Amino acid sequence: RPRTRITDDQLRVLRQYFDINNSPSEEQIKEMADKSGLPQKVIKHWFRNTLFKERQ
């Protein structure tokens, strides 16, 4: 599967949610997917990777 490119607008949506809650529920992930147009799987990976980077 090719790598998903996240646009600036999509990144802005993800960052807004991450700043509020870095561990979103399934419902919140679905909401983000609707707003950003990204697949839920991509959003889950983005949150996991971003949380890991923040903790380092």
Results as ranks from 00 to 15, higher is better:
Lys44Arg: 10
Arg3Tyr: 09
Gln40Trp: 10
Tyr17Glu: 07
Ser36Tyr: 06
Asn49Glu: 15
Lys30Gly: 06
Thr7Tyr: 03
Ile20Ala: 12
Arg5Tyr: 15
Tyr17Asn: 09
Ser23Arg: 09
Arg55Lys: 07
Leu14Pro: 00
Pro2Cys: 01
Asn49Ile: 05
Arg15Phe: 07
Val42Lys: 10
His45Cys: 06
Arg5Ser: 14
Lys44Trp: 06
Val42Arg: 11
Ile29Thr: 08
Ser23Leu: 07
Glu31Val: 09
Gly37Cys: 11
Glu54His: 14
Arg48Met: 10
Ile20Thr: 10
Asn49Phe: 06
Leu51Gly: 10
Asn22Pro: 11
Val13Ile: 14
Lys53Phe: 06
Trp46Arg: 01
Ile20Arg: 13
Phe52Cys: 12
Ala33Cys: 07
Lys41Arg: 08
Thr50Ala: 08
Arg3Val: 12
Ser25Thr: 12
Pro2Ile: 15
Glu26Asn: 09
Asp9Ser: 14
Trp46Tyr: 02
Glu54Gly: 04
Leu14Ser: 00
Asp19Thr: 11
Arg48Thr: 10
Leu11Val: 05
Phe47Glu: 01
Val13Gln: 13
Gln16Asp: 11
Ser36Gly: 02
Asn22Lys: 09
Glu27Arg: 11
Met32Asn: 00
Gln16Ile: 02
Asp19Ser: 12
Thr50Val: 09
Gln40Phe: 07
Glu31Lys: 11
Asp19Phe: 07
Glu31Gly: 04
Pro2Tyr: 10
Asp34Tyr: 05
Arg15Lys: 09
Ser23Val: 05
Asp34Phe: 12
Leu14Arg: 00
Ser23His: 14
Arg55Thr: 06
Thr4Gly: 05
Glu31Ser: 06
Glu26Leu: 09
Gln56Phe: 01
Gln10Ala: 04
Leu11Ser: 07
Phe52Leu: 13
Gln28Pro: 00
Leu51Asp: 05
Ile43Ala: 02
Ser36Lys: 01
Asp9Met: 09
Pro24Leu: 04
Arg3Gln: 10
Pro24Trp: 02
Pro39Gly: 12
Thr50Gly: 06
Arg5Asn: 15
Val42Met: 05
Lys53Val: 07
Glu27Gly: 10
Trp46His: 00
Arg48Lys: 15
Thr50Cys: 04
Arg3Asn: 13
Ile20Gln: 11
Glu27Ile: 10
Glu54Leu: 08
Phe18Tyr: 13
Phe52Thr: 15
Pro24Arg: 01
Thr50Arg: 10
Pro39Asp: 12
Pro2Phe: 04
Phe18His: 05
Phe47Thr: 02
Leu38Thr: 02
Gly37Leu: 04
Arg12Ser: 13
Arg15Asp: 04
Pro39Phe: 01
Gln56Ser: 02
Glu31Cys: 05
Ala33Val: 06
Arg55Tyr: 06
Leu51Trp: 04
Asn49Trp: 12
Arg1Trp: 00
Lys30Glu: 08
Lys35Ile: 04
His45Thr: 12
Ala33Leu: 02
Glu27Trp: 03
Val42Gln: 10
Phe18Asp: 03
Val13Phe: 12
Pro2Asp: 15
Lys41Thr: 14
Arg3Phe: 04
Thr4Asp: 13
Arg1Tyr: 13
Tyr17Phe: 13
Ser25Gly: 13
Ala33Arg: 07
Gly37Ser: 07
Leu38His: 00
Lys41Glu: 12
Glu54Gln: 13
Lys35Pro: 00
Ile43Trp: 01
Gln40Ala: 14
Gln28Arg: 05
Met32Pro: 00
Ile29Asp: 00
Arg1Thr: 04
Val42Asp: 14
Thr50Ser: 12
